[in-house]
Write a protein that binds this DNA or RNA. Structure first.
Lengths: 343, 343
DNA sequence: GCGCTTACTGAAAGCGCATTCAGGGCCGGT
DNA sequence: ACCGGCCCTGAATGCGCTTTCAGTAAGCGC
């Protein structure tokens, strides 16, 4: 599995008839007599020499590859954020390696460990933390020495227990705003398509929504809250469950757009119309929801910007004392999937 | 930028009062007296020791991180394929690092070079090659020594010039099948939303479509072929262009689903109905198109499977002689975005 | 033309780890 | 008890590269 018989710097040096040191300098653009430099470069070219990154890193050269870890690149939410990260990374001449954990804490730690072991200059974590606090602690233990060693870490949309620079979506305020918007449309009976309760994202969004409803004197029937995974099929299943329960809700609030998409599919499959029979709202404003029919009402998050900001945080020295914390987004965008009740 | 002051194996060995060799062995699970092993493990734990991957790799340990390079993870097409790759990688206890080139050949080469330098056991390239043959050659030059060194390479949906294991979509046959299906619906005037001509994917799909049409005696007016980037906005722009030209086409074939989505948006913005006013068909069958309204007629590609197969190819020794080549998909899936003409 | 600075070059050290090679306990056999 | 053999340990080597450090040739002023 391991490549071998590799062309080394020594081979190049020998071919160019110079010393190792000179070859190294020539290849790294340091001051070397032009003639020698050309000989070295030519030799390197001819031998198809590639420096061994491991040896180079081990010998002290600095790395230019940052790591980004998210739950699932396949999910448009994470993809959009990662896109932002990559944009500013590209502007700063950094390469980025993206990893997906598929919500497996063990794998997340394996990736962090690997990035740490490779001495990546920065690690970005995207997405809600895990439900099990034990893992969260293990992660922290893994990150601590990395930070102590000079590594830079930033997180996006992730449980606040990690004491690092963070950029967070306005989950609570956004959900509250959505509640107000929906109330303004005349809705009084709501259903919520929720994700795993242990996630702070869920707690914040659900909490913000419920509290704002309560403020208006509207209660949320526990039977109208259905839990499912944060996926399209999760939304489909949760919506189906809700329908089979015979919920009287006139409006469904899905905690993520991806779930809302699944919900709409379930509704369609049941022959129900959105928003005529029931209104649907989401959260995140992933790019695709604009192109749905009807377009989805949702709480907008500047996903790409979230990623950009995180990368910027990781790139700028935190001269100040403690961690920086940014909150972004949270505005309601009304589109065709929600309608005035009774209209 | 570079972490320093790191805990090394030597620190652990000293703390456990054993030799470096013993510490190394204990941590790698080789035969060591249980008592010593425990001491080492405890010391490592206490010091938060993480082996330096560079040093480890340099000293001969084999790597378990494969690299996947695609144009843009943000595009559902690539994301789906990458998902497949990751699935089988996960099953084989491999970590995968995903890179996006954003169609910048230089960056692609940088990533390959990096992966090569890090001695990754395998590199997967996803997506059509570049328009400029010069870059393609540079890539080849970069890959050659990697392969010679024992590296494994597989490509998905990519220009065939690279002499490596490949899994390819049935572009030509699929497009031809779509032409037949559309003809069967009664359409005779077609428009095509194309991508950059230099891409073989474009050539194959466009060629297959046009030839099948020709076989039925239907010509494709060059004015009805609009070119744009393979993006949602590219599709939107191309469709708008087509409308402004006053095309008489009753059916639009977008060379990718993503473009088709943009096309539908443009149509909607112009107050036109799909499929009543005009039929729209795509290619790829990315997951989201099932949930559009109307759902998109398209040429199905088992995207996840493409990725899985590629990873499998990279994982299995090619005992046989030359490169293996798999072709997959190409079946037309009729959905709501296309209708019988005049109905 | 001599001594001194300047500018490169080459030899060598070492980054952190896996591993080979010897050496030293300990066992069983006699 | 004594010796061969086994198993485990520790010292030492090397992976490929960057980077001092010292050395040598060239360039300058006098």
């Amino acid at each position: 599995m391991q490549p071998r018989a590799h062309v080394t710097l020594e081979d190049v040096a020998r071919a160019a008839d110079v010393s190792l040191a000179t070859a190294s300098r020539a290849l790294n653009g340091m001051r070397v007599t032009p003639q020698l430099r050309d000989r070295v470069l030519a030799a390197a070219e001819k031998l198809a020499y590639t420096p061994n990154a491991h040896a180079r890193a081990l010998a002290g050269a600095s790395d230019r590859t940052v790591g980004v870890i998210c739950h699932d690149v396949t999910d448009p939410y994470f993809a959009a954020i990662a896109g932002g990260v990559m944009r500013v990374a590209g502007d700063n001449d950094l390469l980025v390696m993206l990893a997906s954990t598929f919500r497996d804490p063990e794998r997340e730690i394996a990736y962090v460990s690997m990035l740490r072991a490779e001495r990546a200059p920065a690690i970005l974590l995207i997405g809600s933390g895990f439900e099990d606090a034990r893992w969260e602690r293990a992660l922290e233990a893994e990150l601590k020495p990395y930070l102590d060693g000079g590594g830079r870490v930033a997180v996006v949309s992730r449980h606040r227990s990690l004491k690092v620079d963070s950029v967070l979506p306005e989950n609570k305020a956004g959900a509250a705003a959505m509640a107000r918007a929906l109330l303004d449309l005349g809705h009084r009976r709501f259903a919520v398509l929720s994700g795993p309760r242990a996630l702070t994202t869920v707690a914040d969004r659900l909490g913000g929504f419920r509290e704002e409803l309560a403020r208006a004197g509207v209660a949320l029937d526990p039977a109208d809250i259905v839990e499912g995974p944060f996926t399209r099929d999760g939304g489909y299943g949760a919506m189906s469950e809700l329908l089979s329960r015979g919920s009287a809700a006139t409006c469904v609030f899905a905690l993520t757009d991806v779930m809302a998409i699944g919900a709409c599919a379930a509704l369609r499959d049941q022959g129900l119309s959105v928003p005529d029979d029931i209104s649907v709202a989401g959260f995140d404003d992933i790019p695709i929801v604009r192109d749905l029919t009807p377009a989805l009402t949702t709480v907008a998050l500047p996903l790409q910007r979230l990623g950009e900001k995180a990368m910027e945080l990781a790139l700028t020295e935190n001269n100040g004392r403690r961690r920086r914390l940014l909150r972004m987004g949270g505005e309601v965008v009304l589109r065709g999937s929600t309608a005035k009740v009774g209209s």
